[in-house]
């Protein structure tokens, strides 16, 4: 247990020591999105009846920040350690591959939740965003950041240089996030695109998360939670396989 806790502590310390870049900066950029969108769109769009567009969008933006930061944490930590070579200190140690997995994922969760909480607290000062059900909000934030933390591990293991990581981010993570209904309710989409959105696991994370704020969602939060949990298990299984066989890191 001490070994696992030490690696977790090290991973937390790593982003905390540069907290300005890793926590504060993403909060600011999320708030910029929010200000711009609310200024341009508030008067014209309504996603849910009786919910102002900005308010509708806030949970989506918070979740987007959570997901992106969870992914960034594990992926960038791992690729940095690989490129600078200091990953050997972890690889030489008797830490099991499960311990390594959980330490990295948990650190990603903490960073994702820290950024998400920060964004929420600031928006709370400007907009009337009520929490209808905290447990739903928390469980989706947790599952979303854990899923992205694990995906970040896969990306970090697979990538051999920073360019590869950017590819993973730009061609997989970013499209999945933007097409998941952060900025719209999928009910406003044509049927084909609506159907396609249902294949995007991120859609369920955001939809369920939003349920925790407004008690309305496109899909039942139980179904969303089940789907997200399945995705997490599948991705975790793959990550554990990669770690246990030493794919790319113990060639």
């Amino acid at each position: 247990m001490t070994g696992f806790l030490t690696l977790l502590y090290k991973e937390l310390l790593r982003f905390w020591k540069v907290g300005f870049q890793t926590v504060f900066a993403p909060m600011v950029s999320t708030l910029l999105y929010l200000m711009i969108f609310s200024h341009v769109l508030d008067a014209h769009v309504q996603a849910y009846p009786g919910v102002a567009y900005t308010v509708f969008m806030i949970p989506g933006l918070i979740m987007m920040a959570v997901l992106q930061n969870a992914f960034a944490n594990s992926s960038s930590s791992l690729i940095q350690s690989k490129i600078t070579g200091n990953l050997v200190f972890v690889l030489l140690s008797p830490l099991s591959y499960q311990e390594i997995f959980f330490a990295y994922v948990l650190a990603s969760v903490v960073r994702g939740l820290a950024v998400g909480l920060g964004v929420y607290l600031i928006t709370y000062g400007f907009f009337d965003v009520s929490l209808s059900s905290f447990p739903w909000i928390f469980i989706f934030a947790l599952m979303g950041s854990a899923l992205l933390g694990a995906l970040g591990l896969i990306a970090g293991i697979w990538a051999e240089k920073f360019d590869h990581l950017a590819t993973f981010q730009n061609f997989i993570i970013l499209p999945l996030t933007f097409l998941s209904g952060v900025f719209y309710s999928i009910h406003s989409l044509p049927p084909f695109w609506r159907g396609l959105s249902h294949l995007n696991p991120f859609f369920y994370i955001i939809d369920g998360f939003r349920y925790g704020f407004f008690s309305t969602s496109d899909i039942s939060p139980y179904i969303s939670l089940g789907i997200v949990a399945m995705c997490f298990l599948a991705v975790s299984w793959l990550t554990l396989q990669m770690l246990s066989t030493g794919y790319k890191i113990r060639q």
């Binding site: 001490t2 070994g3 806790l5 030490t6 690696l7 140690s93 008797p94």
Partner: peptide, 10 residues
């Protein structure tokens, strides 16, 4: 201290 923690030594 971190390296020693990896080996479970507190």
């Amino acid at each position: 201290a971190i390296q020693s923690g990896y080996y479970g030594l507190k």
